[in-house]
Amino acid sequence: MNSDFSVLLGEPGRLILVGLVETLKLAACSLVLAIAIGTVVGTVRWIGWRLTEPFCWLYIEFARNTPPVVQILFWYFSASFVLPTPMFMALRDFGYELGAAILALALYHGAFFAEVIRAGLNSVPKGQFEAARALGLRFPQALGKVAFPQAIRVLVPPLVNEATALIKNTSLAMAIGVGEMTFQYRAIDNFLFRGLEALTAITVIYMLLCLIAVGVGRLINRALSRHIRARHPGRAVLPAGSIIQ
């Protein structure tokens, strides 16, 4: 085994950077979309309309119980059959791998986000929302100004977990040929024979991306729990697992 990490400064390194940009694009777009889907579906499930309940249940159960890779393949290969032909033709010239991957990942993680957000809303006492309604706030106001601000603090850690899962799952987009980092690694391995170096590099990059996401989550958490520390100045924010000896 002879590895020479200086090759990363040359062509392989350039390919990895190109892949990194694509990975970030994919992760950012699908994260925004997934949070949007999750917020809408989670809120609708929390409200619990009898009309929408079966559809939400079907969507969430199906999205959560099937592999993301198969979902990506499904949206990619059946696009030409699901979409109207002229639209598909326009998309095909443009290249719709990235779009299909974004859609599939957003739908997959949207279901997880929906469950997380519903659990967060459930953690706010029901009386808060009812009191807001009784005081004359409209439904969206009561949601946006009373329920969500209280839920969001509980929501941050599981949302960060899901966000890191999403960042990791972007690597699956290579199955349909999106040129993200894992795809570039395969290319480097196949054509430039610098597999192990490239693999080490992208492992480190993925790790850094996940750690950055965790760090950002911790900052958000600290910002959101500032009022609690202000109320109890002596109490530090509980370090995880300070309960058992």
Partner: peptide, 15 residues
């Protein structure tokens, strides 16, 4: 935990 499973599969296959 902070590495995609796909990368781990490649490590286990090529290392």
């Amino acid at each position: 935990r902070n590495v995609p499973l796909l990368i781990l599969v490649f490590w286990a296959y090529f290392l």
